[in-house]
């Protein structure tokens, strides 16, 4: 148990460091992420360029730092949105009448059945073209959040249904308290661990979804870096033995995901 707590603390600290690095990117990164040193493309790691440069002569280390900021802010924001929608839809499905419940369950099941990545591609293709890199991050995170709540909503509905017949809820109902108030005041505090667990489950999932989208060239737009679009350098995998430092974004991504999953059980128990 002690080892588990220690691991959890360790993982939490690493996550805090990564988040700190991401937030302080403009002050930590040695160079702007978009700056191109065209005379020095694909150079090896050196004192000047800690992780070398990419094909366009951009400092890979600076891009990794900025990419950490993008990926670590985008995923929790999207997860928060998903959990909020899930809390509303799941709660409403559990508390409302037969037809509304059936309707909400049908919408949830339909969204679960549709391939999210295809919906993301379609919706993204319909969005305005003239947007800044930061707007593209907001759009990507909104899309992720708006499309990935159904699984969490089912869990919330099940959680709500499990406590809906508890004595304190029946008592509140008998006292004439409205369903909305019961949900906010009585049920929501009981659902908080479920929602927290859903949040921590969704964060790594969204980091990976953003990475998948970026790998397809449809995530965060150029020149803004993210872990996902930096992973595109690994497409030519036979070149990796010559340039192992291109694995750095993958290593950071794996560390972040591992830390998130290590932190998760501890949170569930609290």
């Amino acid at each position: 148990m002690t080892a588990r707590i220690a691991a959890s603390w360790c993982a939490g600290s690493v996550l805090c460091i990564l988040l700190g690095v991401g937030v302080c990117a403009p002050w930590i990164a040695p160079r702007p992420y978009a700056s191109q040193d065209r005379e020095n493309p694909q150079v090896r790691p050196s004192r000047e360029y800690l992780l070398g440069t990419d094909e366009l002569g951009r400092d890979r280390f600076s891009r990794l730092i900025y990419g950490t900021r993008v990926s670590l802010l985008l995923a929790p924001a999207a997860a928060l949105m998903s959990v909020a929608i899930a809390a509303i839809v799941g709660g409403a499905a559990a508390l409302s009448g037969r037809w509304v419940r059936r309707g909400l369950i049908a919408v949830t099941d339909l969204l679960l059945a549709l391939p999210t990545i295809l919906i993301l591609l379609t919706v993204r293709a319909m969005l305005p073209l003239n947007v800044s890199a930061w707007t593209s991050i907001v759009i990507t995170s909104t899309l992720l959040g708006a499309l990935n709540w159904p699984a969490a909503a089912r869990v919330v509905r099940a959680g709500t249904e499990s406590v809906i017949h508890a004595g304190f809820v029946l008592q509140a109902r008998a006292a004439g308290v409205s369903d909305f108030r019961i949900y906010i005041r009585q049920l929501f505090p009981n659902l908080r661990p479920v929602l927290t667990a859903q949040f921590w489950i969704l964060v790594p999932a969204f980091i990976l979804t953003e990475a998948n989208l970026s790998l397809l060239g449809l995530g965060v737009s150029e020149p803004m870096p993210s872990w996902g679009n930096m992973l595109r350098e690994l497409e030519n995998y036979s070149a990796i033995p010559e340039r192992p430092w291109v694995l750095a974004p993958l290593a950071v991504l794996m560390i972040a995901i591992l830390c998130l999953y290590t932190v998760l059980p501890q949170r569930e128990e609290t």
Binding site: L56, R124, A125, L216, S221, E222, P223
Partner: peptide
Amino acid sequence: ALIQQDLAKIGIRLNVVPMD
């Protein structure tokens, strides 16, 4: 990405939009 930087030198902002 290169054209984006080239055009930035003459004060033009270019937004790159890859799409399927």
